[in-house]
Simulated assay, not measured.
Amino acid sequence: MESSQIEAFWKRARLRGRVAWLEPFVGQHRLGALPPPAFAFAPEPHLAQSMAEEVLSGERTALSTLRSQLPDGVPPPEVGDLAIVLDGHEEPVALIRTVEVRVLPFADVDDRHARGEGEPDADSWRRNQREVLGATEREEVILERIVLVFPPVEKATQPATI
C-alpha cells in the first residue's frame, strides 16, 4: 500500500463523502486534512477482499475486536471515528464512520451485532469468533456499528410494476 494511494483516496472521499462539507465556510479543520487510519479486515487477501466487498455492498455494518487484542497505546474506537478500508490488494476502497461503540462480554453479544457481521444469530457469531479469536465467554469485546461514507452504496434498480 502506497501512502500516495491513501492520500488520493482520502482527498476524493472527504469531499464526495461530505466529510469536509463545512470547509468553504469555516476553513479546513486539521483532522479533516489528515487521512484516517487505513486497514484491511484480514491479513489473508481473499478474506480482506471479501469483507471489503461486504462493506461496499452494505451487507457488513458491524465490526468486533477483542479488547485484549488492541495494540498498546491504541485507544478504543469512538463514535465519529473514520477509517479507510483496504481491499485484498491493499488498495483503498471505502471510507467508513463508527456510529456506535459498545463493550460487552463475549457471551453477551446479541443477534443485532451478529447480523451486522453477516451471521444469522449471536450463537453462530460466537461459534465462528471463538475459532478465529480464541475468546473466552467473559472476555470483553469492542463492538462497532459502522456506516459507509464513501463511495455510496449503489441502490439496486427495482423493476417497474405494471
Rank of each mutant, 00 (worst) to 15 (best):
A20I: 07
W21A: 11
W21F: 10
L22R: 15
E23A: 15
E23I: 10
E23L: 11
F25H: 08
F25D: 07
F25Y: 14
F25V: 12
F25A: 05
V26R: 10
G27T: 13
R30T: 07
R30N: 09
L31G: 11
G32S: 12
G32A: 05
A33C: 09
A33R: 15
L34K: 12
L34M: 07
L34C: 06
L34P: 01
P35F: 00
P36A: 08
A38D: 04
A40V: 03
F41Y: 03
A42T: 03
P43D: 13
P43Q: 10
P43S: 15
E44K: 11
P45N: 08
P45T: 09
P45Q: 06
H46P: 08
H46F: 07
H46Q: 15
A48C: 11
A48Y: 06
A48H: 05
A48Q: 07
Q49D: 09
Q49L: 06
Q49I: 05
M51P: 06
A52W: 03
A52Q: 05
E53A: 13
E54H: 15
E54D: 14
V55H: 08
L56V: 05
L56H: 06
S57E: 10
G58S: 06
G58Y: 11
G58I: 14
E59M: 13
E59F: 14
R60W: 03
R60C: 05
R60I: 02
T61C: 03
T61K: 05
T61M: 02
T61R: 11
A62H: 15
L63G: 01
L63H: 01
S64C: 10
S64G: 14
S64M: 10
T65M: 04
L66P: 13
L66T: 09
R67H: 15
R67Y: 10
S68Q: 08
S68H: 06
S68V: 13
Q69W: 14
Q69L: 08
L70D: 00
L70E: 02
L70R: 00
P71F: 07
P71C: 09
P71E: 08
P71D: 04
D72F: 05
D72A: 12
G73N: 03
G73Y: 04
V74A: 06
P77D: 05
E78M: 07
E78V: 14
E78R: 15
E78A: 15
E78Y: 14
V79P: 02
V79A: 09
G80A: 12
G80T: 08
G80K: 13
G80E: 10
G80V: 03
D81V: 03
D81P: 07
L82T: 03
V85A: 06
V85S: 02
L86P: 00
D87N: 12
D87Q: 07
E90V: 13
